[in-house]
């Protein structure tokens, strides 16, 4: 009887092995996959590198209210505000962020900043490959996080939704 029991167990185990062999793979083929994400897949809600959004007119949504900085538990957001002028209009309201830095050495990707934002200006993108051997390069400037201008507003770069979602730096050094 013992022999039959053993054979049954092996058959049961091998059936799982064989079943999995012919079903599609669950493991992501990162980093050898195709596309800008190199095979990585994300849930919609994944909290990656921040993206600073623009409104339908291409103006920055951020009005430099500092609420994200106030909400931030790791104190990694630094903002300097300035006033829009008629000659130079950056955001939709009176004030805009002249400097907007996020220190990714400190950021814990908790999403409080996104929750605090009254204008939906800051969102989490899906950018995640930010590890670096140089800590100073982890302080991201506004230009690195800003969503690209929509193509119909004169931006030469083709509007690339995937790149916006990844949150990869718009300006690469």
């Amino acid at each position: 009887m013992a022999v039959i029991k053993d054979i049954a167990a092996i058959a049961k185990g091998m059936s799982i092995t064989l079943k999995e062999m012919f079903s599609p793979t669950v493991v992501e083929n990162y980093p050898d996959g195709p596309g800008p994400l190199k095979g990585a897949k994300f849930q919609e809600r994944f909290r990656g590198v921040h993206v600073l959004q623009r409104d339908e007119n291409g103006l920055e949504k951020c009005v430099a209210c500092f609420l994200c900085a106030a909400a931030c538990p790791s104190n990694c957001i630094y903002i300097e505000a300035a006033e829009n002028t008629t000659e130079q209009r950056i955001s939709g309201a009176e004030r805009y962020a002249q400097v907007y830095n996020i220190d990714y050495n400190r950021c814990i990707f908790c999403g409080y900043c996104v929750e605090a934002c009254p204008t939906d200006a800051i969102t989490h993108g899906h950018g995640f490959e930010i590890a670096s051997l140089n800590a100073t390069s982890l302080v991201y400037r506004k230009e690195q996080m800003l969503a690209p201008l929509p193509a119909h507003l004169g931006s030469n770069a083709v509007f690339n939704q995937a790149e916006t979602e990844t949150g990869t730096p718009a300006v690469r050094s």
């Binding site: 430099a64 209210c65 500092f66 900085a69 106030a70 300097e80 505000a81 300035a82 006033e83 004030r95």
Partner: peptide, 9 residues
Amino acid sequence: YRYKTRPWE
């Protein structure tokens, strides 16, 4: 002071 910063900053 207009639009320079916020009170708690």
